[in-house]
Design a protein around this nucleic acid. Structure first.
Lengths: 238, 238
DNA sequence: CTCGTCACGTCAATGGCGTTGGCATAAGCT
DNA sequence: AGCTTATGCCAACGCCATTGACGTGACGAG
């Protein structure tokens, strides 16, 4: 029989843990986010999370059926933070830029968490709100439904893909990051010109660009292409 | 003292394992790839990999210092398969399209492996060959070095980001995939129009597009933009 | 043909992990 | 005051990656 997990709203009879903290879904997610940031992707374990909260590890299963469910909650919290306080401004290009930048920033603020929840569909409140917001921007701007869905899809994919890619390099454990960086300097910068002429010729430029994000450029290309589609769909008024 | 890992070439005195198989770096990587495909991302463990090879788990540490190193080898194998037999054709746009498609395909053929190695720098042979190939295509086509590096960077990022994003949804454990799909049908398709008008209005279109990749479109946008940059840099001959 | 070396396979053990079922207890309702 | 039950704790299970000590068999040297 599946263990019962009572939804947050119905929770009532909280008992403090041994050391006095009072648990809640929110407190757990926030603590998990902090642990991810401070101790890396591998630093978050049920046992350590329990310890950080002063609670027995097994207690957390009263709030989340599994680490996977906790993961989804963390992801949705990230989306929630990204969208918090956002309002559409009326210019769809500016709106999409802002939304994209917010998502990107939220992910980069917690790269380890971002990587964990990459590509999952949470179906939780914040995620749904984000989808509704994006579709709303496009449809309000006059995109026909099918074009709106196309642009929505491309926008989501591009934002997520780049945010995750950027986050992934930030989220690597310190050791892996140093290893990867070492590989660049030790291997790429030293390749002889006779076997690898093109890398050798551009090694300096390559290393300099190493940690730049390609997202802003890609987003502008997407916006241009969407604008062209919109112009086609709705011929200039008057 | 660090355990000694002898490079493949220097290996000599192979002894068959208990059940007769003769190990090699290549055999291990290929078995790992098969296990990933068949049993999912969580299905690959040192213990199970050992069992599949008929070898004691600890034996694998004679070939790879850690699972992380094995992971990098798997990633490089994927790149190697993607580029195998490829030759530049002289038209840089076509070449980049082909390279992108090959990488994309190789990743999608082993989504679990692709996700594992996402965003790592292996510094191994195949990866270096790929970088050299891409830079070669661009510089041979007449891109000045800085433009070549810019396009290279955008191309790599976009290819990898989308390949990984696409692979990630394929790579989820069966349970998570069913859960995510269920969320779409159960949650998104059922949202009432008064609270979520935009999702409700486009639910059908959204669900239909669910598993389409945004990569091809994004790649064409990138190629167009690169072509424009090239035209600026080298005014038409004649 | 013999012998020594040592690469490589195996064994056993360590400490960590997620997860579960049983139990005690205190919060809130009647 | 008494009952129900949500919630925290405990102990245990079967996994995991990794390591150090131990053999043993293949090979090169003579």
């Amino acid at each position: 029989m599946a263990k019962q997990v009572v939804p947050e709203a119905a929770r009532q009879r909280r008992r403090p843990t041994k050391n006095g903290t009072v648990l809640s879904e929110r407190l757990i997610v926030e603590t998990a986010l902090r642990m991810l940031r401070e101790h890396g992707s591998d630093g978050l374990t049920v046992r350590r999370l329990g310890a950080a909260l002063g609670a027995d590890p097994s207690t957390l299963y009263r709030y989340f059926r599994s680490v996977d469910e906790l993961t989804l909650a963390i992801g949705d919290e990230l989306v929630g933070r990204a969208l918090h306080g956002w309002q559409p401004g009326g210019d769809w290009r500016a709106d999409l830029r802002t939304l994209g930048a917010r998502i990107h920033a939220a992910y980069l603020a917690h790269p380890q968490a971002a990587v964990l929840t990459a590509s999952r569909v949470t179906g939780r409140a914040h995620e749904i709100a984000a989808d509704e917001a994006i579709l709303g921007v496009l449809r309000t701007a006059g995109f026909p439904d099918d074009a709106a869905v196309r642009v929505y899809h491309a926008f989501i994919d591009q934002s997520l893909a780049f945010a995750i890619l950027d986050a992934a390099t930030l989220a690597l454990p310190e050791s892996a990051r140093r290893a990867d960086e070492g590989v660049w300097r030790a291997t790429y910068a030293q390749l002889p010109a006779d076997t690898h002429p093109h890398i050798a010729a551009t090694a300096g430029l390559l290393v300099a660009r190493m940690n730049r994000s390609a997202y802003p450029t890609a987003l502008e290309m997407l916006l241009d292409s969407a604008a062209a589609a919109l112009a086609d769909a709705s011929p200039p008024a008057g």
